[in-house]
Amino acid sequence: MSKIELRAAPHVHAPRSVENIMFNVVLALMPICIFSVWQYGLSSAVLIVTVTATCLATERFFSKASGKGNTLADWSATITGLLLALTLPPSFPLWMGAVAGFAAIALGKALFGGLGFNPFNPALVGRAFVQAAFPSTIASFVPAFAQQRFTSFVPSTWTAPLMIPTDNTGWIKDAAVDAFTGATPLGRWKFENFTYTTHDFLSGAVTASAGETSAILILLCGGYLALRKFMDWRIPVAVVGSAALLAWILHLAVPGRYPEPLFVVLSGGLMLGAVFMATDMATSPVTPLGIWIYGALIGVLTVVIRYFGGLTEGVMYAILIANAASPLIEQFTQPRAYGTAKTDTAGGAK
């Protein structure tokens, strides 16, 4: 052990690790969770706790079964759980939330070999699973800012496992919110041609999934991550930009039929998806051009699914499809390695 230690460059390290990045994402998600609880009350709180706990338990089970040791400390399962809970309706029965959490980690992550090997965003895999399994429950919502939200649970929250969700009509009537329709803004636009004001979206006073309501808060939290370089800012910009651009073109072409671009950007899960899900490092491309293509693909697909598809919301499938395409995008956008011939491009260089 000599006193002088010889080392090769680089000498200055950024103390950045998977745990560190993931922990900061968890921190950034916290305000959104808290806002969701303030908005929807007790039911939202227990849903977030249940889904996250299920994700952690599933992760622990599979990491133990595959002899990998404890992988809970990398925070990735916590992120999956929080994100998944935020994409579910606040009145979602807890047992279905647990199913979603299990599916997210088991089908979305463990089956592929754990963190970094998953081709799809685990939280969205979980949501896609429950969307396919319980299509009517995942499309039923309760009003935000119901007056009894901190004193009583939404009845469907405590539905017995495997049973049909309890009826929420009485609870919604007690909520004393005028003109509650049970449909999200996107649903009302699609089926009743009714659009909301921008103010409703920015303040979160709309019917939606637990964590997708306040665009300002999501932007602030995403801004923190982007500022500290824990997240690639180009992805959300590309997603939102391309969605807005396509929506604007369609709005100009047929103004009566298609809403204004701001409605498209602020409604549904586009903000949450663009900032927190599309940016998942394991499932998005790393090449500079690829990132723009990937983001634009999500934005365009979202608008196409919303406008022309049978579903009211398209962000989830748009991101999953773009996840699937991202290895291909990377292959086609390989930058030329410094010093190699200019003609040799697109993955041919070795």
């Binding site: 279905m96 399994a133 319980f134 495997l162 049909i164 969700p165």
Partner: peptide, 8 residues
């Protein structure tokens, strides 16, 4: 009162 899992 069983809730069927449509996906199955």
């Amino acid at each position: 009162h069983f809730q069927p899992w449509v996906v199955m």
